[in-house]
Write a protein that binds this DNA or RNA. Sequence first.
DNA 1: TTAATCATGTAACACGTTACATGATTGC
DNA 2: GCAATCATGTAACGTGTTACATGATTAA
Lengths: 186, 186
Amino acid sequence: MSLKHGLLGLLNYGSMTGYELNKAFKDSLFSFWQAKASQIYRELDAMEGYGWLTSRRIIQSEKPNKRLYTITNRGKEALMDWLSAPEADIADAMRVKSAFLMRVFFAGETSKAQALDLLHAYREACLANCREMQAGHDAIATYETVVKDEKKSAYWKITLLYGEAFSQAGLQWVDQAIAILKEMES
Amino acid sequence: MSLKHGLLGLLNYGSMTGYELNKAFKDSLFSFWQAKASQIYRELDAMEGYGWLTSRRIIQSEKPNKRLYTITNRGKEALMDWLSAPEADIADAMRVKSAFLMRVFFAGETSKAQALDLLHAYREACLANCREMQAGHDAIATYETVVKDEKKSAYWKITLLYGEAFSQAGLQWVDQAIAILKEMES
DNA sequence: TTAATCATGTAACACGTTACATGATTGC
DNA sequence: GCAATCATGTAACGTGTTACATGATTAA
């Protein structure tokens, strides 16, 4: 249910249209949650059904009409209830799900050269990720000037640090893995 | 489609029943992919439809009847094709999806004490994970004596090292995060 | 005597992705 | 002139979870 709660969290900062929510989602939550616009619209519909938000149509002449979503008191309660019950998500946070590791597991069916290619490709992706992390810091700096709340932005930065820590861990792991393969007699 | 390919990979080691596949999955692939028995049976059905495997009913008197699945040549081809086309999964491997980080992001809506509780709970989970990693090494050691293929088991160990690397990275990150919160004026 | 193991599944639901549709305005 | 932005969605499909059903054997 975290997509719904992510949307609640954003709407708690202020009313937005689905389009704006989609952009805010990409700018701020993308490093740990991804969602397509079509899914966001569907979830907003469901959330309106729960009474978590209300929507108001805004007719525009120059641009397409839009729909402004506003969080209700019920929605704020739902957000706070969720924030107070983190148990399930912590177990979940420990769980890795990776098609890439599935490939590594079965890489013994292919050649060592092919396996090394796979690991080198991962290595490049880690490096690219480390570089791109800067964009996240910039996005937070932008939001910081809008929301002006040091308490909030401290947490935002902590989530970004996670991405950095894990890109670096990936790099160290893949170098270790490459070393193991190179030392392997074959 | 990785669940299907994981099952193909296991069946490539030898014919198994759905029940045995479910156990083999838990023992060997669990650290990076999880699946419920009900889903495994559904996927096996679909895979039989693709011609990737055949099944044979085995009638037992003392125990429930079972169904033995055997990989076909078409199935082996599908496995090899998948192993040769890793591009998509590497981008995917870089993506974090974490309800836990969503909570951290919005933790500014709660008290600092609540946020610290959340981070400490994560810390404990990381420590528990580090300890449990040993069980994975034991499982591989067992399979090693059965499959007797050093080339394969090298890759198995590499996937386990990933879990260790990421538990440790998680620990370092959370200690950094806790330090940031403690230094925060509030 | 209670739980675990063996062994299979179905049905409903929840969540996520892909492809498609519409059509005006603005910047390069 | 072409791509991007603005702004909304629907339909179909794919993947994953939960709850349920059956019923015998074996180990603590």
